[in-house]
Amino acid sequence: MAHKLKTKKRESIGMQYKAISFEAKEITINSESRRISGYAAIFGNKDKAGDILIKGCFSKSIQERGPQSNANDKIIHLWMHNMNEPVGKIVTLIEDDKGLYFEADIDKIDLGDREIAQLESGTINQFSIGYSYVWDKVDYDSEKDAFIVKEVVLYEISAVSIGCNGETHYTGLKTAEEVEDKVIELHSEIENSLQGLSMKKKTEILGLFSKFKALMLIKPEEDMKNKLRSLVQDQAAGNPKKSLFHNVKFK
């Protein structure tokens, strides 16, 4: 169990995301009042990350930064997990037996109009939460091969087109030079974010670390092409057959 949790921690640096798909009938949209409602997370199901969220895992966040709290840095409704694009105000946030239920009033802005229209049309059919684990509230169940998550820090709820993964921010980079440029740019972003420590800033920092993790995991396409070219040349020269992944060790 300890090994599983240690690996989970190492692989979960920065902000995490979980998305839930829904059908049109599962969300309520009032175009006149501009209020939307639905579920942002479901309890009891093992998700793609191997997590099972337990009812109560959001309770502390709701109490401290929910819509009825006195906090200035309340849990916010965003567009596509972008902290620079808040799209509405969460007015209800509760845990019931099914999951995390929310209601949000969408602002009268172009992006708000777009969200309402695309939720109504079904073009967008997912909500996703931005959160971080509270590790002393996470256990591993070997029988279920799942992590039992009893508490998280909830930062935001987003309408998303595709469930976000922190490792997908930079999939378009092709060369090592592009990766280096992004590392320098990210370093500057982190320095700027560290000037303040409000919850919003902490959220931004966690998001930046997620991008950092993504950069560290990227294998530039040009490197892979060079390895493939070398492999073909070795085979043509009659050298022993190699694999692109002959140096990779699995545990």
Rank of each mutant, 00 (worst) to 15 (best):
N72S: 12
K242N: 01
I162V: 15
K219T: 15
Q118T: 09
K225G: 00
D73C: 05
S61C: 10
H81A: 08
K202S: 00
R65A: 02
P240V: 06
I75K: 05
Q195T: 09
E151N: 10
M1L: 12
E178I: 06
S193M: 05
K251E: 03
Y170Q: 07
V87G: 02
N239Q: 11
S21M: 12
K219I: 15
Q235P: 01
A41N: 13
I13D: 09
I76H: 05
F127A: 03
Q233H: 03
K144Q: 15
I75P: 05
Q16W: 05
D139Q: 11
G196V: 03
V183H: 06
G50M: 07
G50I: 10
D136H: 10
K4W: 04
I184H: 07
I190Y: 07
K8N: 08
N226R: 12
H187C: 07
A49R: 13
G38N: 02
A71Q: 03
N72I: 07
V153Y: 14
I36A: 14
E103I: 00
I62W: 08
Q235D: 13
Y170L: 09
E103K: 00
E151Y: 12
Y39A: 09
I124K: 13
R114N: 04
W135E: 10
A71S: 15
V183K: 12
E156I: 03
L119M: 13
V160D: 11
V87Q: 05
E143D: 15
I29N: 12
Y101F: 15
G66Y: 02
K241S: 05
V248G: 01
H3L: 11
E85M: 14
K242Y: 00
L78M: 01
I184A: 09
